[in-house]
Write a protein that binds this DNA or RNA. Structure first.
Length: 434
RNA sequence: GGACUCGUAGUGUAGCGGUUAACACACUUCCCUGUCACGGAAGAAAUCGCCGGUUCGAAUCCGGUCGGGUCCGCCA
């Protein structure tokens, strides 16, 4: 007999069907036993007299019935029907889970959540995090494609430590020292003269010894790069991509946002502030003098987002013109004040979720900048080659997928927004110093 | 790297000088034909992270150690 998906059972009242899925919970009333059966499309109540362990994979043949009047369950899409089982076949018996999977929220401490990752991911509410992530990825692809970008796949093994800034992982490569890339930056720039506009979804590696709620050593970046654009156009592009991703989640996963108790997202016109202007606002509105700082710290980001929400009804804020010295070498200095750069960060609900810049596209200027930073142009031979042959004005940006997911769902820790998070102390299992 | 915090059944917590170490969920057995976080009865399950000290007496106080967590720094 052909398998029926749970959501399709709704239209099969009176028919005999075969359902496949997992037993979520069991309510045993003696002569009558209720099972909640789930598959990828939903959950249905099954009536049987058999005891089946929670978690087991089963195949159930039975008849779809309309529930008696007054016994509907509005929480289920199948709440007006149920399956009267004729035959329950256990395909794979489940052991007892180390915690209660039946509760609406898995109430576990973070280390427990991650120690049992292959099990905790099965919980409906945790699964939802990654359905949202899927929506973000889907919307990013769709928006970038709509903007004329070609999707590219870039390497994560590189011969030079490249960009400076973050610490990088190095390892032995057939007797040579090579590095894991901290961003797809150089590769997407090299592909500008090929495709004019590109995007990539890739992994980025940072060996920073940071143990915080917002850092991963392996993150997923969503990157775009555009040719023939100026600074203001770039700001428009990043705000469009950012807004569309969040709107897609609101549209497609509204119920999940409700489940997580998330406030309605504010889409007012996104304020654009130079770093100095943002610092001025923080001083005036929050009484904290950070005007000498070269970047915003975590508290600054929270403050300025609060201001943007109150004054501009926007959960986003764009911060521009960071000090040139604090940014990667390929960042274009502001021609009007070279101390500052044509760079930007996008903040969303108190956290930086994107950064990027207008790039230096002039070959000579790029070579000089690399030298000024104490790096060697010969380490960038292939990269620089592209700039000798008609590199147009260009720029781009990079979104952090896990950070965006964390902040959309108001998760406490970024590790919750990664299926298998890597940090200083964990690569699937806990690492111990021997 | 620095500061502050927390380690108690499988899980999440309570207890903070003398308790038979408590509660909830999960688990086992029994009862229950309408539950949907089902309900009811009984039960199993913890050398209170580890080592040492103070004390007549330590889960509880002190020191050390190991392991978490949060914040700061670094960083995206």
């Amino acid at each position: 007999m052909e398998r029926t998906l749970i959501k399709d059972a709704i239209s099969k009242i009176g028919e005999i069907v075969r359902l496949c899925g997992w037993v979520n919970t069991r309510r045993d009333h003696g002569k009558i036993v209720f099972l909640d059966l789930s598959d990828r499309t939903g959950v249905i109540q099954v009536i049987t007299d058999q005891i089946v362990n929670v978690g087991s994979a089963v195949e159930i043949i039975g008849s779809v019935k309309k529930r008696p009047e007054g016994l509907f369950n509005p929480k289920l899409i199948t709440g007006e029907i149920e399956l009267k089982a004729k035959e329950v076949k256990i395909l794979a018996q489940s052991e007892t889970y180390p915690f209660d999977m039946g509760k609406p929220t898995l109430d576990l401490e973070l280390p427990t959540l991650l120690d049992f990752r292959s099990l905790t991911l099965q919980h409906p509410k945790i699964k939802e995090i990654f359905k949202v992530q899927e929506t973000i990825l889907e919307a990013f692809r769709k928006t970038a494609t709509g903007l004329g970008c070609t999707e590219i796949v870039v390497p994560t093994i590189a011969a030079s430590a490249t960009e400076g800034g973050a610490e990088v992982f190095d390892f032995d490569y057939f007797g040579h020292k090579v590095y894991l890339t901290q961003s797809p930056q150089l590769y997407k720039q090299m592909l500008i003269p090929v495709f004019e506009r590109v995007y990539t979804i890739c992994k980025a590696y940072r060996a920073e010894p940071s143990v915080t709620t917002r850092h991963l050593t392996e993150s997923t970046q969503m990157d775009c790069e555009f040719a023939f654009v100026d600074f203001l156009q770039l700001l428009g592009l990043l705000e469009e991509v950012g807004t569309k991703m969040v709107k897609a989640v609101e549209k497609k996963d509204g119920e999940i946002l409700e489940d997580f108790g998330v406030d309605k997202i504010a889409f007012g016109k996104i304020p654009r502030l130079k770093l100095r202007e943002a610092q001025e606002i923080i001083f005036k509105e929050f009484g904290r003098d950070v005007k000498e700082e070269k970047d915003l710290n975590a508290q600054d980001e929270i403050n300025i987002c609060k201001w943007a929400l109150e004054k501009h009804k926007s959960d986003f804020v764009t911060i521009t013109h960071f000090p040139t010295k604090k940014r990667a070498f390929y960042t274009m200095p502001d021609p009007e004040d070279k101390e500052y750069s044509l760079s930007y960060d996008l903040l969303f609900r108190g956290l930086e979720i994107l950064s990027g810049s207008q790039r230096i596209n002039d070959y000579q200027q790029l070579v000089e900048t690399i030298k000024d930073r104490g790096m060697n142009p010969t380490d960038f031979e292939m990269y620089l080659m592209a700039f000798k042959y008609g590199m147009p004005p260009e720029g781009g940006f990079s979104f952090g997928l896990e950070r965006l997911t964390k902040n959309i769902l108001n998760l406490e820790n970024i590790r919750e927004a990664s299926l298998f998070p890597r940090d200083m102390e964990r690569v699937d299992k806990r690492l111990r110093n021997e």
